[in-house]
């Protein structure tokens, strides 16, 4: 009796695990864009990589530049749904303003798409809910 009980419960657990995996796979497109915020912060503040702080204000950096907008203030206006706009600003800002000074990080291969995702993930952590 006990043995069959165990078999039953095991079967149930397998079923639930299968359901969970199914939902995770279904939600994959959302997950894949998440990016690593910690990695992104490092990229944004490293001179040889993103070097965002050369022009933008970011917290916890000594003497950031003031050519571009303050990114903490700017990020308050972006919702999660507008994430692809933020990505596009970094990938190639010429789409929004053809005379921008911002380097096209994606088009000129300064950063990889994965690195850009990481940076965007970091930027969304600046958003105060």
């Amino acid at each position: 009796m006990k043995v069959t009980d165990r078999v039953d419960s095991r079967g149930n657990a397998g079923l639930w695990a299968g359901v969970a995996v199914f939902f995770m796979i279904a939600a994959m497109p959302l997950w894949a864009h998440a990016g690593n915020a910690k990695q992104g912060e490092k990229i944004a503040k490293t001179r040889s990589l993103g070097n965002c702080v050369a022009c933008h204000y970011l917290p916890k950096v000594e003497s950031p530049g003031d050519i571009g907008p303050n990114l903490v203030e700017a990020m308050q206006e972006y919702t999660m749904a507008e994430r692809k706009d933020v990505v596009q600003w970094i990938r190639d800002a010429r789409e929004f303003n053809p005379h921008t000074i911002m380097p096209p990080f994606g088009t000129n291969k300064i950063l990889t798409p994965q690195q850009i995702d990481d940076v965007v993930a970091y930027l969304y952590t600046l958003k105060k809910k």
Partner: peptide, 19 residues
């Protein structure tokens, strides 16, 4: 690679800080 010109910094953004 950074897509700058001499003029964009020294004409348009002169007076701002880069770092």
């Amino acid at each position: 690679q950074l897509n700058f010109s001499c003029a964009i910094c020294h004409v348009q953004y002169a007076g701002y800080k880069a770092r």
